[in-house]
């Protein structure tokens, strides 16, 4: 096993222990457990975004559509069909997948900035649907629903156990993500990100690859959205909105796109940062925006990307992105090209 792999594994285990202890640590830091749950769920959503930004090279500026579809998918099926805990999450994922299946073919007609603009436009369609159909969705006010009981029990997890279930999802998605970006399919995605024309001339039907990446991303984001809905027992149009998409993109780039843990770091800073700042100052979004500007201008590889790069160079490597993908991939964060 290569040293970098072992270091990554140790870092992952330390992180896991910290996350397991979080419900004990959080009260000492005056953090509500629901905020910690939010960090995990936004980290999952940012991982979904990272698959597209960091490993496929497309900018998903409407990605929250899938997050919101997950939340509404869970909320509406609980409200109208009285489905139980895991079924509602599954149906949320399904809703996001159907959404991606419907808009994907339109998005794939363009690349670069046009892809992003189309993504915003199609994403907003879902926003307006949720906003308009007041009878079903509650419109602007959103919809409240109760957290249902788990299948086969009469147990509806309270916030404390809910946190651990979400931690389970986070670990599961993290491992699957790690396996995915190391698979031949993941390498093909990285090739598409690096140079799509070349990837085509090596025989890859790149539309098909990007479409499947979009579906996987939507499913992960739908999972995050459905769980978020269950977490706050609420769904509203803002969860589908392009501002929310922007937040997930921000977390990804801030933490380090093209790295496994970057989205988590981004989510941690974003959620905790806005939680602390918003209670202290009314204009709390300004410092967060400034941080993003500094990040993009000063260290475009994000926090984790910059650290990994420095470590790799100290060892005499060529930067973390140059590592052979066969032995362990971390794709690079290059400038996003129009």
């Amino acid at each position: 096993m290569r040293m970098s792999n072992r270091a990554g594994l140790i870092a992952a285990l330390v992180l896991l222990v910290l996350l397991i202890l979080t419900p004990q640590i959080a009260p000492l830091l005056h953090l509500a457990i629901s905020v910690c749950t939010e960090v995990l769920l936004f980290a999952i959503a940012a991982m979904a975004v990272n698959l597209l930004i960091g490993y496929t090279g497309v900018l998903p500026f409407g990605n929250a559509a899938f997050f919101g579809l997950g939340a509404y998918g869970a909320g509406l099926t609980i409200q109208f069909w009285h489905v139980k805990f895991f079924s509602s999450i599954g149906l949320g994922v399904l809703a996001a997948l159907i959404g991606a299946f419907l808009i994907g073919p339109f998005l794939l007609r363009r690349r670069g900035i046009y892809f992003s603009l189309l993504f915003i436009a199609f994403g907003q369609v879902f926003y307006f649907l949720a906003y308009r159909f007041t009878d079903i969705t509650g419109g602007e006010d959103g919809m409240n629903f109760a957290r249902p009981v788990i299948e086969g029990t009469s147990f509806s997890p309270p916030d404390g156990s809910f946190y651990y279930m979400m931690l389970g999802f986070f670990v599961l998605i993290g491992i699957l993500f790690w396996l995915l970006v190391r698979s031949p399919f993941g390498r093909s995605l990285i090739a598409i990100k690096e140079n799509e024309t070349r990837a085509r001339y090596l025989g890859l039907d790149t539309d098909r690859f990007i479409f499947v990446a979009l579906l996987i991303s939507a499913a992960i984001e739908g999972l995050a959205g459905a769980c978020y809905g269950l977490s706050i027992m609420f769904a509203d149009p803002l969860q589908l909105d392009w501002h929310q998409s922007g937040n997930f993109v921000l977390m990804t780039i801030l933490g380090g796109s093209g790295t496994i843990f970057g989205p988590f770091i981004g989510s941690l800073i974003f959620v905790i940062g806005s939680d602390i700042l918003s209670s202290a100052i009314p204009w709390w979004q300004i410092p967060l925006g400034a941080l993003f500007v500094v990040c993009v201008l000063g260290f475009p590889k994000g926090i984790l990307g910059t650290i990994l790069d420095a470590l790799e160079k100290r060892r005499g490597g060529f930067g973390y992105e140059a590592r052979d993908t066969l032995h362990g991939t971390v794709a690079s964060e290059r400038e996003i090209q129009p």
């Binding site: 990285i190 140079n195 070349r198 090596l202 992105e321 140059a322 052979d324 290059r334």
Partner: peptide, 17 residues
């Protein structure tokens, strides 16, 4: 037209796989 950030070996690997 290459994959600039990948190693020569990986550049070949994409086509080979």
């Amino acid at each position: 037209s290459i994959f600039p950030n990948l190693s020569v070996y990986d550049n070949l690997l994409i086509g080979l796989q």
